[in-house]
């Protein structure tokens, strides 16, 4: 990507040619992520959307080095995490934290909230008990929980939304620079989802966070992101500022995704999804050339022969398509 030089010091996370492959079990290789590159600038939220099986979660975990990517580099504030030895990586982990989709499964059912939220302090810091407790109480009230009433309880005594708040408290207690959110609101009810989204925005402002926000929900992603990247079958299709992407989708897949979003408004005509019916190809045997071509209504012979390179159509708007949509 041709970002201008003077922006470089502002880039907190730079991912280059990230590849995640794993063993499919029957001797075949699953190509979960096949060479994606993107930057995140300090203080911004990058949304990563795609449907199930597109590799967005694998990409997020590769950034977290859990497990490490098969190939490619992940530079956090100039340091290549993918090349660091284990012992040097461990203290750095305080700088990048993650929250997960399942609010219940991400908390240990046998540990009290105090120990769950204080876990990172115990691992990373050398604070005294009193100081530790003060921090835990502080961060719990930060995420909207009553510290006194929650500290000594077990996770099963809380609702999904409250569990997600506890997860968030654990993630921000070390004041990380980067917060990776993997579908953090997908398991929640609409009204609770709204509370958590607002809370994430508040926390971002208060703790000067930079976020990578992963979701399958285009409306949610637009709400929280400054820029949005669309992923399909292990590749990035399109990356643009949020408004721009939703107003002028250039990749046929982005357009199809947008058309499919059900709007809570009966006056809005139901969009026709411009996509060839059929199955998502298997990530063990992805199509040649452009990965979307088997379902793309505009596919040409060229699309099967040559993989489209990401090209910039307007400042900051890149599309990986031989025949991008216009208008």
């Amino acid at each position: 990507m041709n970002r201008q030089r003077q922006d470089d010091h502002d880039i907190i996370l730079a991912v280059r040619d990230l590849v995640v492959e794993h063993d499919g079990g029957d001797g075949r290789t699953v190509h979960a992520v096949s060479g994606i590159s993107f930057d995140i600038r300090r203080g911004e939220t990058l949304g990563l959307v795609g449907e199930s099986g597109c590799g967005k979660t694998s990409a997020a975990r590769a950034v977290m080095q859990l497990p490490r990517p098969t190939r490619g580099s992940v530079h956090l504030e100039g340091m290549n995490l993918a090349a660091l030895p284990r012992k040097d990586l461990r203290p750095l982990r305080a700088k990048f934290q993650m929250i997960f989709q399942d609010p219940i499964a991400s908390l240990n059912p046998r540990r009290r909230v105090r120990d769950i939220v204080g876990g990172p302090l115990a691992v990373q810091g050398e604070l005294g008990t009193e100081e530790k407790n003060r921090r835990i109480a502080e961060v719990l009230s930060d995420v909207g929980l009553n510290a006194e009433q929650t500290m000594e309880r077990l996770p099963h005594e809380f609702s999904g939304g409250q569990c997600q708040r506890i997860s968030l408290a654990r993630a921000i207690i070390l004041e990380p620079k980067l917060l990776i959110c993997d579908e953090p609101v997908s398991a929640l009810d609409v009204s609770v989802q709204a509370q958590i989204l607002n809370l994430l925005e508040e926390m971002k402002a208060r703790h000067a966070l930079t976020m990578l926000f992963i979701s399958h929900d285009l409306a949610v992603v637009k709400h929280i992101s400054d820029r949005v990247a669309v992923m399909y079958l292990g590749k990035l299709c399109e990356l643009a500022p949020a408004e721009e992407l939703y107003r002028h989708p250039g990749h046929p897949y982005t357009a199809a995704l947008l058309a499919a979003v059900p709007a809570p408004d009966p006056k809005r005509p139901l969009g026709r999804i411009d996509m060839v019916a059929g199955e998502l190809p298997s990530p063990t045997d992805p199509p040649s050339g452009c990965r979307f071509r088997t379902r793309c209504p505009h596919a040409q012979p060229l699309c099967a022969e040559q993989e489209p390179k990401a090209g910039e159509v307007s400042p900051g708007h890149t599309i990986a398509c031989h025949f991008p949509l216009s208008g």
Binding site: L66, L89, R93, A94, A105, R111, V123
Partner: peptide, 26 residues
């Protein structure tokens, strides 16, 4: 495979700590 173990690894916890505090009580 639960996410709370992943979260512990994400905070840089050692394997011994994960086995003793996250897995063993369960």
């Amino acid at each position: 495979n639960r996410e709370f173990v992943l979260a512990a690894r994400a905070m840089g916890a050692s394997d011994l700590r994960i086995l003793a505090l996250e897995i063993f009580p369960n």
